[in-house]
Design a protein around this nucleic acid. Structure first.
Lengths: 128, 128
DNA sequence: AGACTTATTGCGAACGGTTGTCAATAAGCC
DNA sequence: GGCTTATTGACAACCGTTCGCAATAAGTCT
């Protein structure tokens, strides 16, 4: 039986309050700073659950950290991520979907998954 | 001044002998099994150097491990990687290149980079 | 060849992110 | 209010990777 705890809700809320991807550690730090007494392990567990329920996205940053984000539109989609401020835009990757399938099939690969993310500097951060 | 040691050569050789991406740990294990007395740290250092000299590719697997591969064709390219045996094929991602640029530009992003890799099961491994 | 300089090695300890252990706590059901 | 058991928190354990440092050896100079 799944139980509702204030900890899980706190994680969900905090994640929703953030526009963009955050690391588990960063999320934990924010909550602690805001006065929460939640533990780091619980943040990890909550995030893992959220991803499992498809209520959050996760991706692996180039530094090897797991980043999480509240998942607005559900289903399969990709991201455009600002390297500087972390802001994200969900992008229509339809062309890439079919391309990935084709390319995999052409080489005899099955069960193709793909990692497609575009990192850059958003309009605001580009002004610097 | 850069010096040539048998350790570096051994790493280069071993990497060239492998068709596909390997983790530093796996490479180290293979060398040890083959009788080498090289140390793990040295393998890491050698691999890092190789990547720096663009003599090897590296990418981050979904599990958060760094994978390395001798770099045949130089320049920008992407990979189709077998989740089971690690075999790879370099793929022509031309359509994706331009798509990434467009999508970034459309959102006002500059200095766009992209992470595009397709993981799947190769023909052989699909037979299981 | 022999001496010398200093890049490189190997070892083990340290690190950062993440997961596991386990007793204590508390959510949901009676 | 009790009872059951999912969940929490604190901390140890892990895993891949990097760092510190003394010992080793590559390239240079003579």
């Amino acid at each position: 039986m799944k139980r509702n705890t204030w900890q899980r809700e706190a994680v969900t809320t905090e994640l929703n309050a953030i526009n963009g991807f955050v690391s588990a550690q960063a999320l934990f730090a924010r909550m602690r700073d805001a006065g929460s007494t939640i533990s780091l392990a619980t943040v990890y567990r909550a995030l893992t659950d959220l991803v499992g329920e498809k209520a959050a996205d996760s991706l692996l940053s180039p530094e090897g950290e797991n980043l999480y984000r509240a998942c607005a539109s559900d289903g399969h989609h990709h991201h455009l991520i600002c390297r500087s401020c972390g802001a994200t835009a969900e992008i229509n990757a339809e062309p890439v979907e079919s391309w990935a399938q084709q390319v995999a099939a052409a080489h005899g690969f099955t069960q193709a998954q793909h990692v497609v993310d575009v990192f850059g500097l958003c309009a605001d951060c580009s002004l610097t």
